[in-house]
Structures are given as C-alpha cells and as structure tokens.
Simulated scan of single mutants.
Amino acid sequence: MNKKHLILALSFAFIGATSLTSCDSKKENKAEEVQEQKEDVIEAQREGDTSEVREEQKELDSARKDYREAVADSVKDAHK
C-alpha cells in the first residue's frame, strides 16, 4: 500500500510539472511572436511605407491579443 501511494504521488507531481511547463512554453512562444512583430513594425516605420506600417501594426495587435489570452489561460489553469 505504501508503494502504491508513493507511485501515485510521483505520478501527480510529474503531471503537474509537465502541465506547468507547457503553459510557460505557450506564453514564451507568444511573447517571442509579439517581439518579432514589434521588430517588423519598427522596420516598416524606418522604410517609411505607411501601408506596410498599418499592416504590421495589425499583426502586432493580433499577436499581443494572443499573448494576453495565453497568459489569462495559464492563470486560470494555475488556479484550478
């Protein structure tokens, strides 16, 4: 019975650690995407093409929204 409880506890610990790592990874990926889009906006501004700046800004806004949603999801998952 004692071994069974130990194995069960280790299984839950592993599953918990794995799920937390995957949530952090998702946030990190979204954060990297935001940074890349921000760099694209800056590059378009340097080139002076206003239509390209608008397009890149839309993509940046979308990436920021995705990042906020990923953070909100990870907070919800952490409180379950």
Rank of each mutant, 00 (worst) to 15 (best):
I15M: 03
A70N: 11
E33T: 11
F12P: 04
A72W: 08
D61Y: 06
S74D: 04
D24N: 09
T50A: 13
T18S: 14
E33D: 13
Q35R: 11
K26A: 06
L60M: 07
E56D: 04
F12G: 09
E52M: 01
I15S: 07
D49I: 04
T21I: 05
D66A: 15
E69L: 08
K38N: 15
S51G: 05
R64D: 07
V53I: 11
V34L: 09
Q35W: 05
E52T: 01
G48T: 01
Q57Y: 10
R54H: 04
A44D: 08
A17Y: 07
A72F: 10
N29H: 14
Q45R: 15
Q35C: 01
T21A: 10
A13F: 09
D61I: 06
I15D: 02
T18W: 11
D24C: 07
D61K: 14
E52C: 00
V41I: 02
A63I: 06
K65V: 08
Q57K: 14
D49A: 10
S22W: 07
S51L: 14
Q57D: 03
K38W: 13
E32P: 00
E52Q: 07
R64L: 06
E59V: 05
A13G: 13
A44V: 01
Q45M: 15
N29I: 12
D73P: 00
L20M: 04
V53F: 04
V53D: 11
E36F: 02
E39I: 12
E47G: 03
R68T: 10
A44I: 03
A13W: 07
E32L: 07
Y67Q: 12
Q37I: 01
V53N: 09
V34W: 13
R54F: 02
D49R: 11
V41L: 05
F14G: 09
A17H: 02
S19W: 07
I42D: 13
K38I: 01
T21V: 01
K27F: 13
I15R: 00
E36R: 04
E55H: 12
N29M: 13
K30P: 03
A9Y: 11
S25R: 15
V34Q: 03
E36S: 02
D61L: 14
S11V: 05
K27C: 15
A13R: 03
K26S: 01
R68M: 07
Y67P: 02
V41R: 08
E69F: 08
S51R: 12
E36D: 13
E52Y: 00
S51C: 00
V34R: 07
S19H: 00
E32S: 08
S25Q: 10
D61H: 09
D61G: 15
V71K: 12
D49E: 14
R64Q: 14
I42E: 15
V34K: 05
D61M: 10
N29E: 14
D24L: 10
E56L: 03
Y67C: 02
E33K: 08
L60F: 10
A31Q: 03
E47F: 06
E43W: 04
E56R: 08
S19Y: 09
S25E: 14
F12K: 08
Y67K: 12
E56F: 02
S51F: 12
T50L: 13
E52G: 00
V71C: 06
V41N: 00
S74V: 00
A9R: 08
I42C: 00
D61Q: 15
T50F: 10
K38Y: 15
Q57W: 06
D61W: 09
K30I: 00
